[in-house]
């Protein structure tokens, strides 16, 4: 009964509405619903994840995540390695789960982030040492441009959430007493 639109990419692609659904444009208040959508039958959405290259910018995201992992609490070496691995996996999985309409521009922004480091350091972000990577990430975090801040914020939120709520980190935090003084007061 339904007929899927074949495509040379090997996936079923939804054609732009203007092409495939001329009979069912947006209906204004009070208009009737369309009575038939057989013409739209050929339009079946693709699963966004099927067109994403799994390893896109993976190395870059790993380095950014490492630069954003908090210094505290301090973990044993073995624990730190395990937690870092889990954090990196989580961040990559989250970026992969993003809707495609965000995933595409976000990955373009990541490429820009990497390349624009040349203007400041004469090297891409991936070519910098760890200290400069941290400084570069920090410069985007505090940027006056919302797009720059938002790009870092997304990865930073994933890093903070997965790091501080990791069972090993939680256990370490529970062991530590809260500080005696409140210098923020």
């Amino acid at each position: 009964m339904s007929e899927r639109a074949g495509c040379s990419l090997g996936v079923d692609v939804a054609l732009p509405e203007a092409v495939c659904v001329p009979a069912v444009r947006d209906i204004t208040y009070g208009d009737r619903q369309p009575t038939e959508n057989q013409q739209v039958d050929k339009r079946v959405a693709i699963d966004g994840s099927s067109v994403r290259p799994g390893a896109a910018n993976e190395g870059l995201v790993r380095r950014m995540a490492m630069a954003l992992i908090p210094d505290e609490p301090v973990l044993d070496r073995d624990q730190a390695v395990r937690v870092e691995q889990d954090v990196l996996e989580f961040v990559l999985a989250e970026l992969q789960a993003m809707p495609l309409y965000l995933w595409i521009p976000y990955n373009c922004a990541l490429v820009c982030f990497n390349v624009l480091a040349v203007c400041r350091y004469g090297s891409t972000f991936l070519g910098l040492d760890q200290e400069r990577q941290r400084a570069y990430v920090q410069s985007w975090t505090g940027s006056g441009m919302r797009l720059k801040r938002d790009m870092i914020r997304l990865i930073r939120s994933c890093v903070l959430l997965s790091y501080l709520d990791h069972p090993l980190v939680l256990a370490r935090l529970e062991q530590e007493q809260p500080g005696a003084g409140h210098d923020q007061r």
């Binding site: 939804a14 509405e17 959405a45 693709i46 966004g48 809707p99 495609l100 309409y101």
Partner: peptide, 9 residues
Amino acid sequence: VFPLTGEAV
């Protein structure tokens, strides 16, 4: 709806 994937925007 995002045309390529049918995802909600």
